[in-house]
Simulated scan of single mutants.
Amino acid sequence: MNISFSRLIAKVGLKRPGVAEGVGMLAGVVIDAVLADPRRGHPVALFGTAAAEVEKRVYGDGRARGVLHVALCVVPVALLGHAATRPGDPMVRAALSAAATWAVLGGTTLGREGAAMAELLEGGDLAGARERLPHLCGRDPSGLAVPELARATVESIAENTSDAVVAPLFWGAVAGVPGLLTYRAVNTLDAMVGHRNERYERFGWAAARLDDVANFVPARITGLLAALGAPLVGGSTRRAAAVLRGDGHRHPSPNAGRCEAAFAGALDRTLGGVNVYGTRVEHRPKMGEGPEPSVADIRRSVRLARAVGLAAAGLAVLAAVRGSRGRKG
Rank of each mutant, 00 (worst) to 15 (best):
A240N: 13
A226N: 01
T182H: 07
G234M: 14
Y200H: 13
P252G: 07
R196W: 09
L232H: 12
F203Y: 15
V243Q: 08
A240S: 14
Y183T: 01
R199I: 11
A219F: 08
A206S: 10
R202V: 00
A167Y: 01
A242Q: 15
T182C: 06
T237K: 10
P252L: 10
L232C: 10
A242I: 01
A207P: 01
R238D: 08
V233H: 14
R184F: 03
L210N: 05
V213P: 04
H249T: 02
V193A: 09
A240M: 07
T182W: 15
A219P: 03
L224W: 14
P218R: 05
F203S: 08
A227S: 14
R184M: 04
L244G: 09
R245I: 02
L224S: 02
G248I: 00
Y183M: 01
V233A: 05
R184A: 00
S162M: 04
A241L: 14
G176C: 07
R202F: 14
L228V: 15
E198F: 12
L180W: 04
V165F: 13
V213D: 06
L224I: 13
A242F: 00
S253F: 10
R220W: 14
P168L: 13
T222P: 00
D163S: 13
L224K: 03
A164P: 04
L169T: 11
N187H: 11
R239M: 12
P168I: 11
R209S: 05
G179A: 05
N215F: 09
H251L: 04
